[in-house]
């Protein structure tokens, strides 16, 4: 069950990384460590991502962790404009709404200004290219 919309979740496996994907709202759930692996696959710095994701939580989210059922907490990743990412309180993983993934990747790699950031964002965008509203682009 998708924590955001209650839609059906499927597991998408790519290069050994398993991501839970909601078929209805196209949100993504990353278990602890999986996002790091994906970002390093794309050539990004997993250390930096971890640091960005470890930001102090701003508020409690209404959604619940996929693994433990506890309420997720919202953390702001990156600066101006920051992305609101939902994180499990005890570290089971992260929930990203549709479209948040590339912005998180950008925030974690130095922004769209750097070639590294662009590379990671492009890699991740390629990985989850097909989203609501994008279907017309093919």
């Amino acid at each position: 069950m998708c924590p955001a919309c209650g839609g059906p979740l499927i597991v998408v496996e790519f290069e050994g990384v398993e991501v839970d994907h909601c078929c209805a709202c196209h949100g993504l759930w990353f278990d602890a460590g999986e996002l790091d692996v994906l970002v390093s696959l794309g050539g990004g710095d997993a250390e930096r991502l971890r640091a960005a994701l470890a930001a102090t939580p701003t508020e409690r989210s209404g959604r619940r962790c996929l693994r433990c059922g506890r309420r997720l907490q919202t953390v702001a990743v990156g600066d101006a404009p920051s992305v609101q990412v939902e994180r499990c309180r005890v570290g089971h993983g992260f929930w990203l709404d549709a479209g948040e993934l590339d912005r998180v990747a950008l925030a974690a790699t130095g922004g769209a200004g750097t070639p590294e950031g662009r590379a990671v964002a492009a890699f991740l965008a390629e990985l989850f290219r097909y989203r609501v509203g994008d279907s017309t682009k093919g």
Binding site: P8, L9, I10, V11, V12, E13, F14, E18, H21, C23, H26, E126, L127, F128, R129, Y130, R131, S135, G138
Partner: peptide
């Protein structure tokens, strides 16, 4: 009891048991 579907673009889609969808869209290639 996952139903596993290998997509041509290289990802594998796994449906948990009890999933009633009759078709799924690959999030990578559509």
């Amino acid at each position: 009891n996952f139903v596993v579907i290998g997509c041509a673009c290289g990802v594998r889609l796994k449906l948990p048991p009890g999933d009633r969808q009759t078709q799924v869209t690959c999030p990578r290639c559509g």
